[in-house]
Amino acid sequence: MIGFPESLRFEISEPIDQCVNWLLINLEGLFDAISRTILSIFNAVEWVLNILPWWVVIIALFYAGWKLYNLKTGIVLSVMLFCIGLFGLWDLMIYTLVIVIISVMVSLVLGLPVGILMAKSNLAKQIILPILDAMQTMPSFVYLIPAVMFFGFGKVPAVFATTTYAIPPLIRLTYLGIANVNREVIEAGKSFGSTSAQMLFKIEFPQALSAIMTGINQTTMMAMAMVVISSMIGAEGIGEQVLISIRRLEVGQGFQAGLAIVFLAIVLDRVLQGAAVRLKETE
């Protein structure tokens, strides 16, 4: 292959840098406010998780697994969580969990309205869909860069990066769920003289709920994946443990931490899926 001519250059990295700098200088107050809000939510969630004794968490998980699935699942799930404790990773796991929970919460707050907007407005759909596609193909650690730029190191940028990475499936599934509500059901709603708000809250949203639950599940799993990578920008947690092991070439430690992450992911996935199925049955 012949090299691309040196004289043909048009780089977008420069303007992006300028743009980010401009944002940093002019929106400093905004970033500070976001930072403070996330921190206080973080502390609140962490506080709640920390006052729960470890055995209460494990028993609760056992009970959830038992009720949602069966006795065996209850045992397997709680043993997995117990193992994380045995590995000496309990506190780190709580930390990881807090970041995941907050990211999912923020995703819900932002993602649901955006998904609904996409289902309602063709223009919004045409603008946002390609953005979602781009976001979902972007390598995950690219999100670390703006996170660090805007929020420095620590848990706040970790939440930011994790949310940005994890939010697309929730938006997409909210949109799909609402856009795909059976046409006749929509017409039935209209034919009884529902207002748009009644259509949304009494028909479209409840009908889309199972798709949205799937979205929440996927978003949680993506957040789990990202929170590990976020350890590169100073998020504490199990991911950090993996990172340290890589640096020190401690295979055993690294494997153990990796396994703990897998366990945590499985536990979250099972519980959320079970809850989704249960919700569908009883709704």
Binding site: E184, A188, G189, S191
Partner: peptide
């Protein structure tokens, strides 16, 4: 008009699957 004068019955029923029979019938 739709609330008080005209109602519709649909070929594939158009029922709200998340609501009970009673809640469906109450919808209007």
């Amino acid at each position: 008009l739709r609330r008080h004068k005209v109602s519709m019955v649909f070929q594939h029923f158009g029922l709200l699957s998340h609501r009970t029979v009673l809640k469906n019938v109450e919808y209007g």
